[in-house]
Design a protein around this nucleic acid. Structure first.
Lengths: 147, 147
DNA sequence: TCATTTCGTTAGCTAAGCTAATGATTGTGG
DNA sequence: CCACAATCATTAGCTTAGCTAACGAAATGA
């Protein structure tokens, strides 16, 4: 691990913190926070999925997801169903309302960022597009269904 | 704002979420979380700074910073001093312990990321370094003292 | 069958964000 | 000069999101 690697990591770290703080400012309107958006997107695109699988995909512990799903269900965004094969597991799927809200809420957050992207010079915009693609490859744990 | 801008923003958004989840796993050892690290770094490098200034730099509300500073002070990482000119404001500065912990704690988080950076191909590593530099320019609100 | 493992939940803790209200100080218009 | 307005920080009280430990229900296997 070189000194450069550390510098790169440091920059990514700071940038991630500040980017998320920035987008968080629009959450009041959507009612969907970062965690919910992320989980909901895995549910929407990852099909019916169990609590454990979801926890792993989101890199958090089962109780965290368990509660999150309870809240999403409470708001009618997802539904749960016991697996008939293995009655311990629960399959979670998005409702149509959940799918709709996912796209809308994500759009709000992303639009907030996109505003800033749009304000850059064409040159810098091109660089940022490349950076985003690279970063996506780097940040995804390979087995992550989407996000 | 083009469709591409949205896609770029979307990728940055997801990547930020997952990167922070990743580094968070080492916080138990350091005792310094993402928010504390970030604030402490502003205090260390931004010299004596008021609560309001700190809140603005960190893009959060004053009460959030007020509590954070109280905790940092409680742990002996920063000290506060009333401004003699304007006795409403409080100037916060890092203690030597605070400075030391900043570098150590930051190092731990960053090392976690750097591990992953180091595991990439030279080619991809080069791309990521460029991405990090670009991202740093993008994510900083220009007036942000450091981090 | 009975012990172990796995899946999900509950309980209870911490951190970090917010708004609203308050106290202390400063600044200002009559 | 003084009363009122504005500013700075804090407190109180709420929410979300993470964690571990403990537990019940279901499956697995010796």
């Amino acid at each position: 691990m070189s000194a450069t690697d550390r510098q790169v990591a440091d920059r990514l770290h700071s940038a991630a913190i500040h980017l998320l703080r920035h987008v968080r400012t629009v959450d009041s309107k959507s009612g969907l926070t970062a965690s919910r958006l992320s989980a909901l997107s895995v549910i929407v695109f990852g099909g019916p999925i169990s609590i454990s699988e979801l926890a792993e995909a989101e890199q958090v512990r089962p109780p965290t997801i368990s509660r999150l799903v309870k809240e999403l269900e409470w708001e009618g965004l997802v539904s749960r169903q016991r697996d008939t094969r293995d009655r311990r597991v629960i399959r979670i799927r998005a409702t149509s309302k959940g799918k709709r809200l996912l796209f809308e809420g994500r759009e709000r957050r992303v639009a907030k960022l996109a505003e800033r992207v749009a304000g850059l010079s064409p040159d810098e915009r091109e660089r940022l597009a490349e950076a985003a693609a690279t970063l996506e490859r780097f940040s995804l744990p390979a087995d992550h269904p989407l996000s």
